[in-house]
């Protein structure tokens, strides 16, 4: 397929969602306490290094998306849930961090386990 001027506007305003219209059971529920896996692949991942081994709480379930770690390497979409997970600044950066501040990171099913 060739991108032609007449379809540019439609391509831009439609985009390409990474959502997958497939029913996949979530591994977690809102409110669950989770531990991020010590997951350190040499291949593509969307798990930032600073989260490895940290504890958080699931705040929202965003639904089912293609899993970047397999999708990047033509190993399939491996559709799974992506969640907003809350971490305290202290959990991530230690005792010198603010005791009030927090982070929200988008985390896939395969990156974490229930505590």
């Amino acid at each position: 397929m060739l991108l032609t001027p007449d379809i540019v506007s439609a391509v831009a305003s439609t985009g390409a969602s990474a959502r997958v219209a497939e029913h996949v059971a979530p591994r977690f529920r809102v409110g669950d306490r989770i531990l991020v896996r010590n997951y350190n692949p040499a291949t593509h991942t969307r798990l930032p290094g600073y989260l490895r081994g940290k504890r958080g709480i699931v705040e929202a379930d965003y639904g089912v998306f293609a899993f970047p770690d397999t999708h990047a390497h033509s190993l399939g979409e491996k559709p799974q849930h992506c969640y907003s997970v809350r971490f305290t600044a202290r959990e991530l950066w230690g005792e010198t961090a603010s005791d009030r501040d927090t982070l929200r990171v988008d985390v896939f099913d395969d990156y974490m386990d229930l505590v």
């Binding site: 397929m1 991108l3 391509v11 593509h44 970047p68 999708h71 990047a72 033509s74």
Partner: peptide, 20 residues
């Protein structure tokens, strides 16, 4: 990006990995 995406059919994940 959009121009090559349309004919080459790569994923944004593959694109990001190439940058990495």
């Amino acid at each position: 990006f959009a121009g090559t995406f349309v004919f080459a059919g790569y994923s944004v994940d593959e694109f990001r990995h190439a940058i990495e």
